[in-house]
Design a protein around this nucleic acid. Structure first.
Lengths: 355, 355
DNA sequence: ACCTTACCAGAAAGCGCTTTCTGAAAGCGC
DNA sequence: GCGCTTTCAGAAAGCGCTTTCTGGTAAGGT
């Protein structure tokens, strides 16, 4: 009884015999690729039901050399940003009847490459890379070395929120333009002394948002001096730590931009702990518009991104008919959403225009 | 050039020829199942590298009739509760070198059964069912009909946060006991008039938490009258709607229990909109301790569940050696975490002991 | 020196399907 | 009534691996 009596699966062969047809006919009857007499089709279906036939996806994939799985590689499914995008991917996947293999890199670049390789072995129809890439030559090359042969062999790649290092469709947030608009909005409120809670500088997303923000400030003749940019991890705790670090600096800004909502959330907590009230004492803005920032007190001003749609688009792009020659790029989001976390600077800080 | 020139993959056969060994040896050299002379192993490895050989996982699975993928079925990846558990699953999966296929049912019971079937076809080594099941005879039977043959064929099933309808390992939150403890804690603060924002009553999680809460109240001789239990969807908006509904009722409670943190988040928003301050005017508690409730103002009192660990346990249980005879059950969490969303009831509400 | 073990490598038989290729039967014009 | 196309079903050849099974060679015992 404690024997490993894993009984074999019912195979198509058995179904065919039961229905009194050949293997080939049974296959056709079930997939409906070619016409089969209705009566036979029914007989096969009935037999399959009766026997509880479950096709072997591996055999199907092998024989047809095509699968219908796609791989989704993200940095961290637990993060609300990726969770929202993943949700979109799942919705589109359900519609298109593809199965999603999930990979979480835990923010380690090497893992990403490893997963691409694994997904290649799985013969995934498409690979979706979600989240910023790294500004690192050797990493880029290694990733390309995995991706290129994959694409050449007919695989599809779509990236979300990441510069295209390879021939891939892309869904790109308006990082730069969005950050510029945010800067303008913040300037319009009267702010002149800014600080930025920045993420790992090797992430392209960080670089873009920072550049865009600087650009916006520059329009008002303001430059962000290095002391006003604090780096932290791309997480809530990273934002918290960065904000605390910021508070130790000599000059205090009237307005802080967290390059990510998640970081801004951490910053909000840090400010609260320090007895600094947002937005009375300091204004705070983020980027992404993850759902949770609406629940904060105060709700966060941010640059909106249609996260769920981004996921849907990614998979749709990837599965659409071959890209013609070039890959498609879809730019999304980038509108500022003003909420209560930003306000005009406190009256007593009118002095000290930025350098 | 626009031809579909999807070039074939390098097969093991090619690698073997290149290395000057047989197919069988090449296979053994690469997987290391049997001893192969070191020199040959190296030759094969080198050839594989050189040719960019990527094994075909489908062929491997077919030939060895074993795969190393597991299926993860949850109600909604976008929900922080599931996202946190999924994160745990991913961590454990990465350690154990298994690939996760993700399925999101969007809270439709039928989809769950469909996904089980799909994962069966994929010959997943294990299927993880995350989230409450439904109290619905026909659904249960249909799910069992999918799961039973799967298990009999050697598949493993683990459930998280769900009663075991089948022979499955389980990670079960202390829903009932946790809710009872919460009730006690709330009573200890002096509350006597309670309301509950309940989820879909057909979910076993809801039933358990409600029962546990009632039990705790009963210890103080308090019974929850039906007018004090408002049902809503298991989402933020469901909690919001339920809370608004609650506010239209004649008697106002001094303390509200949202059976889910996510619902409590919605409730908090509803209260705020209605000008009701938490916890001054009304106390609010949730259940789950999803990370975001710590960021709220006020942070939410709740019953803690080790969400990430739950996911890790689920996959570990499922992949561990065969269950002997019986399946294992791991009970987790259930401790009350008091935060600022609960306080003694307002002084002017001392009257009206609950019936 | 002879027989037994032990170790490795190759041949070949599948794993469970899809899909081409082949052939039988039926429909049709003249 | 004969050759034509058309429709549908079966035979069989793989898809790319793993894994027995077989055999050859080297090591070990007496």
């Amino acid at each position: 009884m404690s024997e490993r009596e894993a009984r074999a699966h019912v195979t198509l062969d058995v179904v065919a015999r039961r229905a009194g047809v050949s293997l080939a006919t049974a296959s056709r009857a079930l997939n409906g690729t070619t016409r089969v007499r209705d009566e036979l089709r029914e007989r096969v279906r009935a037999a399959a039901d009766l026997l509880g036939y479950i096709p072997n996806a591996h055999a199907q994939a092998l024989a047809s050399s095509s699968s219908n799985t796609v791989g989704l590689i993200c940095h961290d499914v637990g993060d609300p940003y990726f969770a929202a995008i993943a949700d979109g991917v799942m919705r589109a996947a359900a519609e298109q009847d593809v199965l999603v293999m999930l990979a979480s890199t835990f923010r380690e670049p090497a893992r990403e490459i490893e997963y691409v390789s694994i997904l290649r072995a799985q013969r995934a129809r498409a690979i979706l890379l979600i989240g910023s890439g790294f500004q690192d030559r050797t990493w880029e090359r290694a990733l390309g070395a995995e991706l290129d042969p994959y694409i050449r062999a007919g695989g599809r790649v779509a990236v979300v929120s990441r510069h295209r290092s390879v021939r891939a469709d892309a869904v790109l947030p308006e990082n730069r333009a969005g950050a510029t608009k945010l800067a303008r909005a913040l300037l319009a409120l009267g702010h002149r002394r800014f600080a930025v809670l920045s993420g790992p500088p090797e992430l392209t997303t960080v670089a873009d948002r920072l550049a865009g923000f600087r650009e916006g400030l520059a329009e008002a003749g303001i430059t962000l001096d290095p002391g006003c940019v604090v780096e932290g991890a791309f997480t809530r705790d990273g934002g918290y730590a960065a904000a605390r670090e910021l508070l130790t600096r000599p000059t205090r800004p009237t307005c802080v931009f967290g390059v990510t909502d998640v970081m801004a959330v951490g910053a909000l907590a840090a400010f609260r702990e320090a007895g600094i009230e947002v937005p009375r004492d300091i204004s705070l803005a983020g980027f992404d518009d993850i759902p949770l920032v609406r629940e904060l007190t105060p709700p966060l001003t941010t640059v909106a991104l249609p996260l769920t749609e981004m996921g849907q688009h990614a998979i749709s792009l990837a599965l659409r008919e071959p890209h013609g020659q070039r890959s498609r790029v879809l730019r999304v989001g980038g509108e500022v959403v003003l909420r209560a976390s930003t306000a005009p600077p406190p009256a007593d800080s009118a002095a000290g225009e930025g350098t």
